[in-house]
Each structure stands twice: as C-alpha cells, then as structure tokens.
C-alpha cells in the first residue's frame, strides 16, 4: 500500500469515526454538556458559593478546569472503547482487518476519532462554563497541549480496553471501577492540600491528578503540583510517557492479533 493509499484509508477511518459520533449526537454530545452544566450549577454555583476559596481561587474558578478535563477524559475513552468493541462484537471490525492497512494506521485512526469527540465535548463544556464564570487562560499553548495529549492518552486506554474486552461488562468495568474513582479522587473538586499527609502521598500515585493539575495550572497559573514539589514539566513527561507506553502495548497486541484474531 503506497503512502497516498494509506492516507486515503486513514482519512476514511477518521471520517467514519467522526461521522459515527456526530450521527448519534444526542447520545454522545448532549449528555456530557448537560451533566457538566449540572455540576457547574450545583457544585460551582449553589454549593461553591458557600465553600468560598479553594487552592487560592474562587471555587467556580477552581472546579472549572477539572470539570473540562473530566469531560475530555471520559469522552475520549468512551468513544474509542464503545466504537471499537461495538465493531468487534458485530464483527464489522473484520471489514478493516482483511484490508492491507498497517496496524499503526488503524490505531491512529481510532485515536484521532476519540480525540475529535473528547475535544469537541471539551469545547462544548468550556462554552457551557462561560455561563457561570469569566474564563481567562494564563497559558494557551500549555492548556492546548495538556488537553490534546490527555485526550490521546485516554483514547489509547479505550482502545486497549476494547481490544481485550470480551463482553459489554468488560468495557464498563474499567470506566466504572477504575477511571471514575481516579478522576473523582484526582483533584477535580478539591485541592489535595485539604487531605492529611498520608492521603496526599497516596493521591500522588494517581496519574489523573497530574493531568488535571497541569491543565488547571495552564488556566489559572497555579495548582497543587508546585505546592507538593512537582514541576509542570514532570506532569507533561508523565503524560507523554504513558502515551508511549500505551501505544507500544496497543501496537504489540494488534501485531500479535490479541483480541482480534482467533
């Protein structure tokens, strides 16, 4: 397959993935917007006004970057895991596996599809947040880098989950029992400085904490990371490191036919 053919095939996968979630926009784009709007209303507006400051900021200002990242993470992951596993379940994945497409393009196509949804939902949620407070971004470059790289990372995670999943239970276990607790305990709603020292140390093992705080830093210019002795660069290296790790595992699994060839 020459490069032009590969480019056409890659565009076809990305187009199909975007077309899929746009076609069912009521299921894919509206619910996160409503959920996050409710978070803003309840935690930010109603309860937040009684909380006062968090991490040196108004509670609404503090919680907004976390909620945006939460939407990006959940939707990037959900798009890839449901699309890939759905195709595996219906066996329509065979349409793709019988073609001469190299595995890295299949992976890249799905990841970009997940990114597209994650970033679109992130943009919708950001737009919704403007109803509740005035957004000002300290470092645009950093915020764009963090949000895109986090979206890539969780798209890869969704792909890996779908690759090894054998039932619909398998694709709900990871988001429900692993991702959701890590997101909620990753400093979306509170500063981990509120925690006792022991739990602060435990929280440092949560990779999502670094992503949320890196994004919060890019928006507000301050986050829990520096106060805990970590630089933003360390968070960025960690995100990139996880991307490399998951990409390697996904490609190795695809080449070995794990989850897709009997």
């Amino acid at each position: 397959m020459n490069l032009v053919s590969q480019w056409v095939a890659f565009k076809t996968i990305v187009y199909r993935e975007i077309h899929r979630f746009m076609r069912i926009w009521v299921q894919t784009l509206v619910p996160p917007a409503i959920t996050i709007a409710l978070y803003f209303l309840i935690f930010g507006q109603l309860i937040g006004s009684r909380i006062g400051e968090m991490g040196g900021f108004d509670y609404m200002q503090f919680v907004a970057p976390g909620l945006i990242m939460m939407a990006v993470i959940q939707n990037s992951y959900a798009n890839v895991v449901s699309s890939f596993f759905g195709q595996k379940f219906a066996r329509s994945i065979e349409e793709l596996l019988i073609t001469p497409l190299p595995h890295y393009l299949i992976l890249l196509g799905w990841v970009l599809g997940g990114d597209a949804r994650g970033l679109l939902v992130g943009a919708i949620v950001t737009f919704v947040s403007l109803w509740f407070y005035d957004l000002s971004v300290v470092n645009w470059t950093l915020s764009i880098f963090v949000v895109i790289s986090t979206s890539v990372l969780f798209s890869l995670g969704g792909f890996l989950n779908a690759l090894f999943a054998e039932s619909f239970d398998d694709i709900s276990i990871v988001p429900t029992f692993i991702m959701q607790p890590l997101i909620y305990l990753g400093g979306v709603f509170y500063s981990i400085q509120l925690l006792p020292t022991f739990w602060q140390t435990v929280s440092l093992a949560n990779p999502i904490l670094y992503m949320i705080n890196a994004f919060r830093y890019s928006i507000l210019g301050s986050s829990d990371l520096e106060s805990l002795g970590f630089s933003i660069n360390s968070a960025l290296f960690m995100i990139v490191g996880f991307i490399i790790l998951l990409t390697t595992i996904c490609l190795w699994s695809l080449n070995k036919g794990r989850g897709i060839r009997s």
Binding site: M1, S5, T12, E95, T99
Partner: peptide
C-alpha cells in the same frame, strides 16, 4: 464506499 476507502480508493 467506506470499504473502498480502506483499500485506498479515493472517495
């Protein structure tokens, strides 16, 4: 058409 795309056929 999508299947054609997978084989590199322009749309």
């Amino acid at each position: 058409v999508t299947q054609g795309g997978y084989y590199g056929l322009p749309r």
